[in-house]
Simulated assay, not measured.
Amino acid sequence: MALPAATLAVEAIKNRPKISVSKDVTTVLLASGLGIGVFFAVRALVRKFKRNNRERHALQPGNPANFAIRLKMAFENDNAFGWGTDEEVVFDTIEQIPNASMMRKVERAYKDLYGNNLSADLMSELSTEEFAIAQEIINSKT
């Protein structure tokens, strides 16, 4: 009895409707896939160029990338036990930023270097009270 069921299944597979995709649809799908791939490749190259440019100028005192790197190093504080943010360095670095315009440049440099938003990292690394103090310092800049 299993034999007729298997035969019916084979016949059903042979007689199923064929799906065909026209050349135009195939061309559009390939072109859109290629376009998306090129977009992401160019975006990655631009981000790498920005990051390399920021890193090249980071050793100059007063450069926004210098401040951004100092903040990131304070977040990744490698003290004797290997944990914790060095809040004093964070506050000192933010206080050394001369004005609001430079603060915006530091935020942009931080984003270019690390791909993260500086405010979000400050919020995650500092306690609520410490974050409020940092925001107060940032907002006091004119």
Rank of each mutant, 00 (worst) to 15 (best):
R51I: 04
A2R: 10
A31P: 00
G115R: 11
N116K: 14
F39G: 08
E129M: 10
A109R: 04
E55A: 12
R104N: 15
G33Y: 04
F40W: 12
V10T: 08
R56Q: 09
S22V: 02
D78L: 11
Q135P: 03
A120L: 11
M102L: 05
D86L: 10
S32W: 01
V90Y: 03
A44T: 09
E130K: 14
Q135V: 07
V106C: 05
S32H: 03
L122N: 08
P64V: 12
R16I: 08
S119C: 01
R43K: 13
M123Y: 15
S127E: 09
A12R: 05
V10I: 12
A31H: 01
A58Y: 00
G37D: 00
I138E: 05
N116M: 12
D112E: 15
E125P: 00
L59C: 00
L71Q: 07
A109H: 06
A68S: 09
D92V: 08
T142Y: 08
L34W: 03
V28G: 02
F67L: 03
E107K: 13
H57G: 05
V10E: 00
I133M: 12
D112A: 13
V90L: 06
S20H: 08
F81Y: 14
T85K: 03
E87F: 04
F91P: 04
L30P: 02
K105L: 14
A65Y: 04
A80Y: 14
N15R: 03
H57Y: 08
A6R: 07
V90P: 02
K72T: 02
F40D: 00
L30D: 09
Q96P: 01
L45I: 08
L71F: 04
G84E: 03
I36F: 14
N53F: 09
V90A: 03
V89G: 02
A80E: 15
G37K: 04
K23L: 13
A12F: 01
E55H: 00
E55T: 10
V106L: 06
F75H: 07
N79S: 13
S20I: 12
K48F: 07
G115Q: 07
I19Q: 11
T142I: 11
A9F: 09
V106F: 04
F40R: 06
G35S: 13
F131E: 03
I69N: 05
H57W: 06
R16F: 02
F39H: 07
A100D: 09
L34A: 07
M123H: 15
I133P: 03
I138T: 05
G84Y: 05
E11V: 10
G115I: 08
K14D: 11
R51C: 10
R47L: 11
G35F: 09
K14L: 14
T93L: 07
I69Y: 02
F49V: 06
M73F: 05
R16K: 09
A12Q: 05
F49N: 11
R16P: 00
A132R: 15
I36H: 03
E125H: 14
T7K: 13
I36P: 01
M102P: 02
V21P: 00
A5S: 07
A6P: 00
L122E: 04
G33P: 02
M102F: 01
A120V: 12
R54S: 09
A9R: 08
L34P: 01
E87M: 06
L45D: 01
S140W: 03
T26V: 13
F81P: 00
E55G: 00
R16S: 12
T93S: 07
A65V: 06
Y110Q: 06
